[in-house]
Amino acid sequence: MKARLASMRWGRRRTLVAIGLLAIPLAGVLVFRIMPAIASFALSFTEWNLIAPPEFVGLSNFEELVGDPTFWQALWNTIYYVGGAVPGIVGVSLALALILNRGIRGIKIFRTVYFLPVVSSMVAVGIMWRWMFNAQYGLVNAGLGFLGIEPINWLGSQTWAMPALIVVTVWREIGFYMIIFLAALQGVPRHLVEAARLDGAGPWQRFWGVTFPMISPVTFFVSIMAMINTFQAFEYMYVMTEGGPRDSTLTLVYYLYLQGFEYFRTGYASAIALVLFTIILVITIVQWKIGERRVVY
């Protein structure tokens, strides 16, 4: 009995220290992260222009959303953008990592160069590429002209604006994911690959038979991460196209921004936010389930 008392005394002291350490961090997470997340959910059932008091409107924001062609356009654009950017990012960065992992000299220089866009802000990158894609004087069209291709009005065309943004996205992100792949590749035990070689497997078979299965969890992780990041694309659209031409590059987050901070329809914007959150959650869960089954070793 006495024993239990003593240890409680001590335990309580430790608990006090822990509370002291956690008070500020937890209060912050609660106030600035958890509460806004919940509030966002609640706001989606209201109509509020930030001036008049908020008004509960039930599901009407969502009803409006369903009938809003711009919303559907934004959703489609976002899917298009993600669908284009993610395979590009994963494929290119994996290929680069595979090459760099071949005992290349000057790996450090290549790594630095490929990483350069990663540290550059999306705003700067966007502006830089807006100039690259300039219809009359841009370097991209100059290069294409060199190959005998007619100039394309990249950012001014409903067809080409989104592909241009995808190119920019892939260009900026590959350095980041390449490093992750490189770390994973260096974790693949050499002896496994060697064993496969002794068994007579060619390089292609060795890659698909040994290396790829070993790094598939990382590939899986990278895909999810890239997907979640690209789903929230905003900066390029903001500085390069403003969602145009004719809403052809309007993404969900950009639409959310417009509704919330240009038209001050916070309720409606929150409804969009909720859709965004749901989509990301669903993708995560679905990929998770698939990953659980498919990722092999």
């Binding site: 600035f32 509460m35 806004p36 997340a37 929230q232 987050v253 921004y257 965004l276």
Partner: peptide, 12 residues
């Protein structure tokens, strides 16, 4: 996603 929290954060 951070964007989901933007509006409430703005209000806050």
């Amino acid at each position: 996603p951070v964007h989901v929290e933007l509006i409430p954060q703005f209000i806050l």
